[in-house]
Nucleic acid binder design. Structure first.
Length: 185
DNA sequence: CCCAGGATTGACT
DNA sequence: GTCAATCCTGGGA
């Protein structure tokens, strides 16, 4: 079992340990294959300048979610860790209830169903209405890894500050990553 | 009060 | 590869 104190750690550790963990929302979802860590001393983080109305959940209990609107269009899902830090869930391997996810996403290739932070929230039906909910209560559910995972680590995507921090984590060679990790030299 | 700028995606050249 | 869509946050005035 994953317990709440799993999240009471630095977001970089949690982000790495979440790869391979299964997340379900209303019974749909799959194994997490890509994450990014954000924290309070991080200029790229919403929490960098302290608590605001939007980012309040990032300063709430570990193991709850922070959901925010991205580009006025998409929703992005984060798991809150120590206060002011969180892990952005960037991609899932679609495993459970593909039917429901396909219905919400429309006609897309399986590879694109949950392959990106905006895509996976759409597939699962997660919106700002769910901001602040606990991962340990329905409609959320978590299941531990069932096998060892090979990790890839790299720089975060789509940000303009702290671009060189290696805070992006992925399941090595997963076809469901939102973007390939740069080839290691 | 104002308005620049997004932790993105999909359509198009 | 380029670019618009779309909205709302929050820093600065």
């Amino acid at each position: 079992m994953i317990a709440p104190d799993f999240f009471a750690r630095p977001s970089s550790e949690v982000a790495a340990d979440l790869i391979g963990v299964t997340m379900l929302f209303n019974g749909a979802g799959g194994a997490i294959v890509e994450t990014e860590a954000y924290h309070g001393q991080d200029p790229a983080s919403h929490s960098y300048r302290g608590r605001t109305p939007r980012n309040g959940a990032m300063f709430g209990p570990p193991g709850h979610v922070y959901v925010y609107r991205s580009y006025g269009i998409h929703w992005c899902l984060n798991f809150v860790c120590l206060p002011g830090s969180a892990v952005l869930i960037r991609a899932l391997q679609p495993d459970v209830d593909l039917e429901a996810m396909r219905e919400r996403r429309g006609e897309v290739a399986l590879r694109l169903l949950c392959s990106g932070p905006g895509r996976l929230t759409e597939a699962l039906g997660i919106t700002g209405a769910h901001d602040g909910l606990s991962l340990f209560e329905p409609p959320f559910a978590l299941h531990p890894r069932t096998a060892e995972v090979m990790l890839e680590i790299g720089t975060r995507i789509g940000i303009t500050k702290a671009v060189d921090e290696n805070l992006r984590f992925g399941a090595k060679a997963s076809p469901f990553l939102s973007k390939k990790f740069p080839a290691t030299v």
